[in-house]
Amino acid sequence: MKEPAVEIKDLSISIGGARILEAVSFSVDEREYLSIIGPNGAGKTTILKCLMRIYPNWTGTVKVAGIPIDAMSQKELAGRISYVPQSEGRSVPFTVGEMVVMGRYPHLSPFTSIKPVDREAVEQALEMTGTSGIAERRFNTLSGGEKQMVLIASALAQGAGIMLLDEPTTFLDPKHEEDIQRVLATVNRTLGITILNVTHDINSAALNGDRVVILKNGRVIYDGDSESIITNELLEGVYDRRFMIHRHPRTGQPVIAPDIIEP
């Protein structure tokens, strides 16, 4: 039997005395597109940071391709998982090209300059994300959407089989949001990269991707098909409110309609 790409078992962590994750278990198959949703403070970002060992003091088991990540060096881990953090508030003076080259870090040695294989990976990443045209621009002069795309390009250049994303579309306008979703779909389908996407967009989690894990108060309360999450039985338990549900005009899938707020 093939090992899952990521296998999380009884993952728990406390930060500053507060229990953030409580015995979280789920696994992600290779080439799967998994969305993680849940209210603010549910522990979604924390899962990604535990996987990346940004938070080191968790308990439980995390295996990547069957190997416990404790047994890997940070570089080995980076060779298997790439991470796209929230881009908000990041102001760095590097050019886009330099940012994407930095994604090759796990493959570089201190003295040799980048090799043709690195150059190729960088070029492919720029091309797939449509950022070739801004390669010479400085990161801190870019718009929010462009910054996010560059962070994805940099993670892509890393060449890992699994990509973690932390709310990649949260601060973006609909056009850039769609661009990002399209890139993620391409990355997932054509490159076969496994995706773990933390998001607040319930509709997007339902429509884009194969599976959804819902977290609340540090526990997994749903793990299953992305299509079947749009029910008030489930969502009311998650967000403590009811949603207006209707049908998507093209596919007929259930989606959430925005509410009209009356004072």
Partner: peptide
């Protein structure tokens, strides 16, 4: 270079 961007990103790149 990676530390300039952030500890989290540096770690995720293998530093």
């Amino acid at each position: 270079n990676l530390l300039t961007i952030g500890d989290d990103l540096a770690l995720s790149r293998g530093v």
